[in-house]
Amino acid sequence: MAQGPEYLKPTEKQLKARRKRNVAIALALVAFVVLVYVGSLAKLGAQLFDRAL
């Protein structure tokens, strides 16, 4: 009787590499979001705070 397909289990070294890669991607994404936010604030400038509510 055949069982389901066998999947390779990643080694501890591969899991650590994956974690590091995920952290690097997350940090890059956060940096990009902050950069866009700061750029938006810089483009709007003082007009952002000098408006009627």
Rank of each mutant, 00 (worst) to 15 (best):
M1R: 12
M1P: 07
A2T: 13
A2Y: 13
A2V: 10
A2W: 01
Q3M: 13
G4V: 04
G4A: 10
P5Y: 07
P5T: 04
E6P: 03
E6A: 07
E6F: 02
E6T: 04
Y7Q: 06
Y7F: 09
L8A: 15
L8T: 12
L8D: 14
L8C: 11
L8N: 05
K9N: 08
T11G: 02
T11K: 05
E12P: 00
E12G: 07
E12A: 06
K13T: 04
K13L: 08
K13V: 10
Q14N: 11
Q14M: 04
Q14Y: 01
L15H: 03
K16D: 14
K16Y: 02
R18L: 14
R18A: 15
R19I: 08
R19F: 07
R19T: 03
R19C: 12
R21K: 15
R21L: 14
R21S: 13
R21N: 08
N22F: 05
N22H: 06
N22E: 14
V23N: 03
V23W: 00
V23R: 00
V23M: 01
A24R: 03
I25V: 14
I25A: 07
A26S: 12
L27C: 12
L27G: 08
A28H: 09
L29T: 12
A31M: 07
A31N: 05
V33K: 00
V33W: 03
V34W: 01
V34N: 03
V34T: 06
V34L: 14
L35G: 02
Y37F: 12
V38W: 00
G39K: 02
G39P: 12
G39M: 02
S40Q: 11
L41M: 09
L41H: 04
L41C: 08
L41Q: 08
A42T: 08
A42P: 04
A42V: 09
K43A: 10
K43L: 09
L44H: 11
L44F: 11
L44Q: 10
A46L: 12
A46E: 09
Q47W: 10
Q47F: 05
L48Q: 09
L48H: 06
F49N: 00
F49Y: 01
F49K: 04
F49S: 04
D50Q: 15
R51I: 13
A52M: 13
L53D: 14
L53V: 07
